[in-house]
């Protein structure tokens, strides 16, 4: 086992990866949900009946944070931190787990922000043309694709790593 400054390096890298996945995905989502939420508040102030449709649009950019958390949790399970009996992680395995977390960490961060912007724009559609609300939902959902691809890549990679 390699130790840097007395720290168990493999386990440290795995935890760093898990942390990145959770907090970068979380940042993406909080900014996205934040932008969409402000716009929704504006629309609801003038037209409270639109709340239901807007809530759905606001929630869309929230998934990146959940995906990030999911990947982080997966890593924690994998290295046995949850059961109180941590596995021995070599520095190779640590690096692998760390790298496996990156797809969702970055795709979550960026897609969360942009999905928030598209959601806010789509709220403009709901405000002006309520009859086109269904279409308004599809546009921000397109951005979701890339968060899902990131999640998928991360999970496949983590599952493939041998401990």
């Amino acid at each position: 086992m390699v130790s840097w400054f007395g720290i168990e390096a493999g386990m440290g890298l795995a935890i760093l990866g898990a942390a990145l996945a959770v907090f970068l995905g979380g940042i993406g989502s909080s900014i996205g949900v934040g932008i969409a939420g402000q716009m929704a508040s504006g629309v609801v102030t003038e037209d409270p009946e639109k709340f239901g449709k807007l809530l759905l649009l606001q929630a869309l950019p929230g998934t990146q944070g959940i995906y990030g958390f999911l990947v982080g949790f997966w890593v924690i399970l994998k290295v046995g931190l949850l059961g109180g009996d941590p596995a021995t992680i070599t520095i190779d395995q640590g690096f692998q787990l760390f790298a496996a977390c990156l797809p969702i960490a970055f795709s979550g961060l960026i897609s969360g922000i942009w999905q928030g912007k598209v959601s806010a724009a789509a709220m403009g559609i709901v405000a002006k043309r309520p009859e086109a609300s269904g279409k308004a939902l599809i546009l921000p959902a397109m951005v979701e694709t890339y968060a899902i691809l990131g999640l998928l890549a991360s999970i496949l990679l983590i599952t493939g790593i041998r401990i």
């Binding site: 402000q38 716009m39 504006g42 003038e46 806010a120 405000a127 002006k128």
Partner: peptide, 14 residues
Amino acid sequence: DSRYAYAVGRIRVL
């Protein structure tokens, strides 16, 4: 741009 999100939301209804 997102500074204006709330304002734009209200304006879109108005």
